[in-house]
Amino acid sequence: MAPAPPPASVTALLARARAGDDAALDSAFLAVYEELKRAARLQLRRSRDAVDTTVLVHEAYLKLGGAQLAASDRNHLLALSARAMRQVLVDHARHAKAQKRGSGEDALTLTANLGVEAAAVVDVLALEDLLGRLQRIDPRAAQIVELRYFGGYSEPEIADMLGISGSTLSRDWRKARAFLFAALSA
């Protein structure tokens, strides 16, 4: 695997992209492409979603809006990409749920035996709802969950991306997990 490009080169490419250089935006994404694919693979492995890794990365890229992208540096680009992957997966889960509801099949009840795909849809949609609630309470904790779950990043990577200490990240991560556990147990 090729070493990650220096953050300064990605930052310079993003600055050129904001100035209107479309080729620079493509180059910035190519510079972090393998890292985005790694994050997508981790996410898809956890969610058991039917979306392909490459499709997820490319749809996230499209969702970011190309020339209107406001990423200021490599870490910001990775964080925005994790959010876009989350949105793609949520959209996919909502579509799958709507298809299931409107496909003429029997309605699922709370006691129904959910298949793997149905459980993944419920998981992604439930997490999306909980993240929205956590966002209103503690935006940074919600961002940490988003980067861990949807981005697949480690605690040290997230601390670096957010510019916070490892102990602050650990404290926020514990708080976020406690919130999610309490909400899921209720």
Score class of each variant (00 low, 15 high):
Ala2Phe: 14
Ala2Trp: 12
Pro5Ser: 15
Pro6Gln: 14
Pro7Met: 14
Ala8Lys: 12
Ser9Phe: 10
Ala12Thr: 10
Leu13Glu: 01
Leu13Lys: 00
Leu14His: 03
Arg16Asp: 13
Ala17Arg: 02
Arg18Asp: 04
Arg18Lys: 06
Asp21Leu: 05
Ala24Glu: 01
Leu25His: 03
Asp26Tyr: 06
Ser27Arg: 14
Ala31Gln: 03
Val32Gly: 01
Glu34Tyr: 05
Leu36Cys: 07
Leu36Tyr: 00
Ala39Val: 01
Ala39Phe: 02
Ala39Leu: 00
Arg41Cys: 03
Arg41Phe: 07
Arg45Glu: 12
Arg46Met: 08
Arg48Met: 03
Thr53Ser: 08
Thr53His: 05
Thr54Ile: 06
Glu59Lys: 13
Lys63Trp: 12
Gly65Lys: 04
Gln68Asn: 11
Ala70Gln: 13
Ser72Ile: 10
Arg74Met: 13
Asn75Val: 03
His76Ser: 15
Leu77Lys: 04
Leu78Asn: 11
Leu80Cys: 07
Ser81Phe: 11
Arg83Ala: 13
Arg83Gly: 10
Met85Asn: 02
Arg86Ala: 11
Leu89Thr: 06
Leu89Val: 07
Ala93Cys: 07
Arg94Val: 03
Ala96Asp: 10
Lys97Phe: 09
Ala98Tyr: 06
Gln99Phe: 08
Ala107Tyr: 10
Leu108Lys: 09
Leu108Glu: 10
Leu110Gln: 07
Leu110Lys: 09
Leu110Ser: 08
Gly115Ile: 08
Val116Phe: 10
Val122Trp: 02
Glu128Arg: 07
Asp129Pro: 03
Leu131Arg: 12
Leu131Phe: 09
Gly132Arg: 05
Gly132Val: 00
Ile137Asp: 09
Ile137Lys: 15
Asp138Ile: 06
Arg140Ser: 05
Arg140Phe: 07
Arg140Ala: 11
Ala141Met: 02
Ile144Tyr: 01
Arg148Ala: 00
Arg148Thr: 08
Phe150Asn: 12
Tyr153Cys: 01
Tyr153Phe: 15
Glu155Arg: 15
Glu155His: 15
Asp160Trp: 13
Asp160Gln: 15
Asp160Lys: 15
Gly163Cys: 05
Gly166His: 11
Thr168Gln: 08
Arg171Ile: 07
Arg171Ala: 13
Asp172Ala: 15
Asp172Cys: 14
Arg174Phe: 11
Phe179Cys: 00
Leu184Arg: 14
Leu184Ala: 15
